[in-house]
Design a protein around this nucleic acid. Sequence first.
DNA 1: CGAGCTTGTAGTAGATGTACTACATTCCAT
DNA 2: ATGGAATGTAGTACATCTACTACAAGCTCG
Lengths: 75, 75
Amino acid sequence: MSNEVVYNRIPMLRAERGISRKDLAAALGVHYQTVGYLERGEYSPSLFLALKIAEYFEVPVEVIFSLHPFARLGS
Amino acid sequence: MSNEVVYNRIPMLRAERGISRKDLAAALGVHYQTVGYLERGEYSPSLFLALKIAEYFEVPVEVIFSLHPFARLGS
DNA sequence: CGAGCTTGTAGTAGATGTACTACATTCCAT
DNA sequence: ATGGAATGTAGTACATCTACTACAAGCTCG
């Protein structure tokens, strides 16, 4: 049932903060490869991890994750 | 890593709407026992399912799910 | 050039989430 | 009192998530 797509903006938020995957992973308490998998969309995080990510970036979950594609910012 | 607790208010929201687990499950496209497991806290949903639930109840994810216990309403 | 940081890819292993079936219990309505 | 709806429990099976190790490639800084 979680074979469905969940879009995410982790790369954008991480770029805004200027931190590496490794640092983000450390802050979240997960393996740095896990962040890579999430950013590349190979799978979506557990709810627990999603809530941790939202807490870390201090934004609502919906700002980072969505069932529908995010609008592109550029061109 | 999702061996951690995620608190949820599904029973309360479902009671407010006055719908059964079976109907909620059907609306979400999951097995009715899955809703039971979630309500009893036996495990927390995938992010995909959490987003569907929030969409169904028309509230932000944080209203239903939290890393920290919800305040009790009564006494 | 050489070292180190960042990211991508690959693979194994274990934990968690979901589907499904079956049966027991409680409660309400007829 | 009988049946049906709603819920709880148990158990199996499969899919997904996460950890971890290892290696390749690009980049920057000395």
